[in-house]
Design a protein around this nucleic acid. Structure first.
Lengths: 335, 335
DNA sequence: TTGAAAGCGCTACCAA
DNA sequence: TTGGTAGCGCTTTCAA
């Protein structure tokens, strides 16, 4: 409970001087500063963040809005973010909102108002009122892997990633290619799902092929969802010879479905994912790798830039490079 | 920037009355209250958290200390924690400290002081000064899967979990059983690694067996580490017929090593993990499941209890039940 | 039931 | 270079 007055008394100066000395401002004599530092150290004084914020209007807190904490992509991005923001003196306040039918937390003004200096949004599926709220907060905001019109964005070119995956299969001679995407009902606003699908369609059409509607199935972005999707695909009268999954989790699900049906990968079915999940290599999964950690770092950097800016903000959109990683889950089509 | 004064003016009452009305305190007439509520609504007024905290000394923030964000166990526990704390009006402030040689953040008073009302610690490997700091903060604290003497603990009986895993293998006739644990150098303080090892040793010794020192290898708690460990074990002149890994990630790594060496699991090698990781079933991994999400919830509940307490605190230690989940990675020993 | 005023702990302005 | 003072926005006595 030691306050600035205690330090002032101990150092024999005024609270104002303690404040200046401790924050490294000029117009404090070296002797005074060291006296103050010593006293503060002695009393293990730390300024109350509430009091400081009340005066400065700054909280040193960045809010992070995520749909899930326990899915690889999100936790990895966050991991990349944390370090950089910490180094610059910011704390991370978590808003784990859920997604679609698992939406558990609605952002509202009471949660955010005067609580954060900036926001990092990893979540799609925000309601229009929530987006309006974000604007009303008047704080810098960076969206990762989501489009929030008007705000900075860090991500990858989703369409291109899917094209890479699809072209790899086409180059191997596959012609009947399926796409396992998100959940169309829950993901209506999720550009990621749509863009990746568009990439598949584009790559196919360049070879004069189409994405058969039976070969376009949802996967919920989970392993279980991917397995169900794979199940559906493999039970078609004319099953695909290859699958592009919008995420590695779903791709792994498809692998499970294939295994359960006794299909040998890649002999009977080629599978390619997108992400390069930590565990992708354990399934020898061919995938399009995206720099997840780096996206977190870059988002943090953009936030820091915006926080440091004085003038008007120039919108930033940064897509990081992706790369096809060929492993053992894809092979030339059996003729 | 609307403050309590604006609301007071709009409602034609004093700030004090607004404060009482908005917080649902008694001694406010119904008419006045509704006038105030209407005015607050109209101006979309939200009280400044800094100002409120400054007066009350409460922040409505719980700090969570984790060693990693992007590892399944930690992100899943956190996911369980978040919801419950939110429901009770608490925010989560993240402290992603790292572990061992990847230690990136040292807890210090400036980080925590007056910033959190309580702490959830998922991290081992805190330095003695950090533990002393935690005590000096005088806030409720619950440790998950870690022993912090004197503080509440939520976890599992690690020793028992390892015993279950080992007994399963013994029951299948295995006699040469290996243990893949953490990194002994980095995990000196990590009771989890030691307790699980003790469980293996205990189960073995009940059958008159010992844990051969060559069969006791480190795994870093990662898939890669597990793979290296598996590699080491399989290259022994007398390799084990079965492996207990202290985590599913490491167990999966062992499976990879086996596959790379052309060993068929479970014919040539049985592998059992601990956790029941989300992806464990994709590798058909036999494992000892622990209720991770539930640990997060329970920890949150204990924190809420402690926060609500007025009298002295009674230390709580809660171990949740574990359960052997038999899948396809274990089989009777080949004779 | 309501309001005036003091004060939470700090920073910033203006004098000295 | 330093200190007094006036807030920051709210809550909480104490009076009315």
């Amino acid at each position: 409970m030691t306050s600035i007055h205690d330090v002032a008394r101990a150092a024999g100066v005024s609270p104002a001087t303690v404040s200046r000395a401790l924050r490294g401002m000029d117009r404090v004599s070296p002797q005074t500063r060291s006296k103050v530092l010593a006293a503060a150290q002695e009393l293990s004084y730390v300024a109350s963040p509430s009091a400081t914020s009340l005066v400065s209007g700054k909280t040193s807190v960045v809010g992070v809005v995520v749909p899930f904490l326990n899915r690889w992509f999100f936790s990895s991005v966050l991991d990349g973010t944390e370090q950089l923001l910490r180094q610059h003196g910011y704390h991370l306040l978590l808003f784990n909102v859920g997604r679609g039918s698992a939406r558990t937390l609605m952002l509202d003004q009471r949660l955010l108002w005067k609580r954060v200096d900036a926001l990092l949004v990893l979540s799609a599926d925000l309601e229009p009122e929530e987006v309006a709220l974000l604007a009303a907060l008047h704080v810098p905001l960076v969206a990762v892997d989501v489009d929030l019109p008007g705000w900075d964005r860090v991500g990858i070119d989703d369409r291109h990633a899917a094209e890479l995956a699809t072209e790899h299969l086409l180059d191997l001679g596959h012609r009947r290619i399926a796409y396992v995407g998100g959940n169309p009902e829950e993901d209506v606003h999720l550009a990621t799902a749509l863009d990746r699908e568009a990439g598949v369609v584009a790559a196919l059409s360049r070879r004069g092929l189409e994405l058969d509607s039976a070969c376009r199935v949802r996967g919920d972005w989970t392993v279980r969802g991917g397995r169900d999707a794979g199940e559906r695909l493999l039970s078609l009268r004319q099953p695909p010879t290859a699958v592009v999954a919008a995420s590695d989790e779903m791709a792994i699900g498809v692998l499970c479905a294939a295994r359960e049906r006794g299909r040998i990968v890649p002999r009977d079915l080629s599978v390619v994912g997108i992400d390069d999940h930590d565990l992708a290599f354990t399934h020898d999964l061919t995938t399009v790798a995206q720099p997840v950690h780096e996206q977190g770092r870059l988002a943090a950097q953009l936030l820091l830039d915006a926080l440091a800016e004085t003038g008007p903000h120039q919108r930033q959109v940064r897509n990081l490079p992706v790369e096809l990683v060929v492993r053992g889950s894809t092979a030339p089509v059996c003729s």
